[in-house]
């Protein structure tokens, strides 16, 4: 290294660098503003337009005998439908997803079968919702000759829900330190009891949070319902027989009708849907917070 004469005073950084730094900072703030504006606009419109129409009548009446131009009517049938479909799909996909995750983490570590399962779960995560609807349509309704029903919708939803449950549960199980398992084995506890008594309780809150988020996500899905549940304006409480309605479907259906009263119903339906989804999200966060180590 060549010797440098007298060391210079503390140099300022060059104007170019300073300007670049400021420009980037400006761009970052700008992009945040760009992102926030439409999102706030969506929320604001849903809230303001939705509350105008959201009342007890809306929540307790169906659309039976109410034409597109008539005021009144509600989403009772759609709310019932959504709740039943989401419940059914949870009943299907939570046990399967959970067991798959347990297998992947506790039993199949790195084996060929577990790698294959892992790969399929990854691929399933990327399946567009409309394709899962088409699959149930092709398999359940066209090939097996079953009717359009809430159950068919629930099947389509579970295709979407299962990979999410597997992934989140897997992540949570992986976070359980191996020391805990070994401590349990060292006490002579068999593997299955270790999983049930030590591993699952440790990962419990994380898994529940993941499941709630998965439920919230499928509750808002429209496309698969469109192809499997079909439409109805009447109340149908039996998810195994005949077309049902779902809230997202209701919003879609109403927003395609070119009258103001229908649009109002769509907003109210959207608000109800957002409230349900946000509620599920909130419950998930609360569970996460309630059992988080930081709080103890």
């Amino acid at each position: 290294m060549t010797a440098i004469q007298h060391a210079p005073a503390i140099r300022r950084i060059s104007t170019g660098r300073r300007v670049k730094d400021k420009i980037v900072q400006g761009l970052v703030y700008l992009s945040f503003a760009i992102a926030v504006v439409p999102l706030l606009s969506v929320l604001w419109l849903v809230l303001s337009n939705g509350f105008a129409r959201l009342n007890m009548e809306f929540l307790t009446h169906s659309m039976r005998n109410i034409g597109a131009r008539d005021a009144g009517g509600g989403a009772y049938h759609a709310i019932i439908g959504t709740l039943e479909q989401v419940l059914l799909s949870s009943v299907i996909s939570i046990p399967v997803g959970l067991l798959t995750a347990i297998y992947l983490v506790e039993y199949g570590r790195g084996g060929r079968l577990s790698r294959a399962i892992s790969f399929f779960v990854d691929v399933m995560t990327g399946i567009p919702s409309v394709v899962s609807g088409l699959f149930i349509l092709a398999f359940w309704i066209l090939a097996l000759g079953m009717p359009f029903s809430g159950f068919a919708g629930a099947l389509a939803l579970s295709i979407l829900m299962m990979p999410t449950v597997v992934r989140s549960a897997e992540e949570m199980l992986l976070l359980v330190p191996n020391d805990l398992r070994e401590a349990s084995y060292a006490l002579g506890v068999p593997k299955w009891r270790t999983i049930v008594k030590v591993v699952l309780p440790t990962a419990f809150t994380g898994i529940v949070t993941g499941i709630m988020l998965a439920i919230a996500r499928v509750a808002g899905e429209t496309a698969p319902l469109l192809l499997t549940v079909f439409f109805t304006d009447s109340i149908n409480t039996d998810p195994f027989d005949g077309p049902q309605m779902g809230l997202p479907l209701y919003v879609f259906d109403q927003s395609r009708r070119p009258t103001d009263v229908a649009i109002d119903r769509a907003w109210a339906g959207a608000l109800t849907l957002i409230l349900i989804v946000m509620l599920l999200n909130l419950v998930a966060r609360l569970i996460g917070w309630w059992r988080s180590p930081a709080r103890r």
Binding site: A7, A9, I10, R11, R12, I13
Partner: peptide, 19 residues
């Protein structure tokens, strides 16, 4: 640093770290 205050108001931390 050689008589110059690194924490003077007009000194940029970035140029300090460079030195």
């Amino acid at each position: 640093l050689d008589g110059e205050d690194l924490y003077a108001a007009d000194v940029e931390p970035v140029s300090v770290r460079r030195m």
